[in-house]
Amino acid sequence: MNLELPQDVNIKSVLAIRKYLYLPVLTVMVVVVLLIAVITPNIRKISQLRKEVKLAKEQLVGLEEKSNFLASIDEPNLQDQLTNLERILPANKDVFSLLVSLNGLAVDHGVAVGNFKTVPGSIATESATASARPEEGEPVVAQRQESARKQADLDTLDVSFDLVGTFEGISNFILNLERLKPLMKLNTLSIVPAKARSDTSTADRVSAKVGLSLFYAPLPEQLGAVGSPIIPLADSELTLYDELSTYSAYEITVPTSLQIGREDPFAPF
């Protein structure tokens, strides 16, 4: 029995089939390399880019709305509103305008204001207070939050004074006191018949000791970021503004043509 293979079916011819495996192996390698080096990082990058593009689109829409809104603002009207609000809620301890208002109200109701006292309070500048200085290593976020809280705060200046007048005059003065510019709130009120403090006063006169807080709001130290959204004034805020605008305001009137003396003292009379 002859078991030799013929010339056509030798081992070489069988192994020659391996040439068909080069491409598949190469393909697998290429696929693996592409998956690791290109596809996976790109899918991650695309996911990240999509998020960024979405955020950027929202930011763009917000900025467009903001710029359109700001363009539609009537700036002279806004300036008037601001001036009015500055008189309603001043940026500093405006004792002078308080005195003018109290004096005007007192004159209107025929009462006399006296013994005006005020407590200056703390110095407003941050650099003056040791606690305001940032400690080394203190988180910046905490400082910003503290700064934002200070900005949003409403400060008060405590004031006390005495009133003397008729009961009707004093009661009208008190009833109108909290509808004055600048804004103030009564803290204490003590009404005493005037004769209890002074025997020379007439019986129908009373005196009152008034303690009040004058409100003021320091100006913000920084403006928000350009991209921060702007919220239009709500109807309730506009209503409040209209209501506050009706509050009484008194002004010092200085005569423009006040004759103090002669322009030329050597001129003949």
Binding site: E75, L82, L85, L89, L219, P220, L223, V226, I230, I231
Partner: peptide
């Protein structure tokens, strides 16, 4: 563009802040 309106924005924000604090005071 918004930077160009910075003055109006600051005034507007101040109006808003003053109204908010005035409400608190009232």
């Amino acid at each position: 563009i918004v930077e160009g309106f910075r003055s109006a924005e600051s005034k507007y924000l101040l109006v808003k802040q003053k109204l908010s604090l005035s409400r608190k005071a009232v």
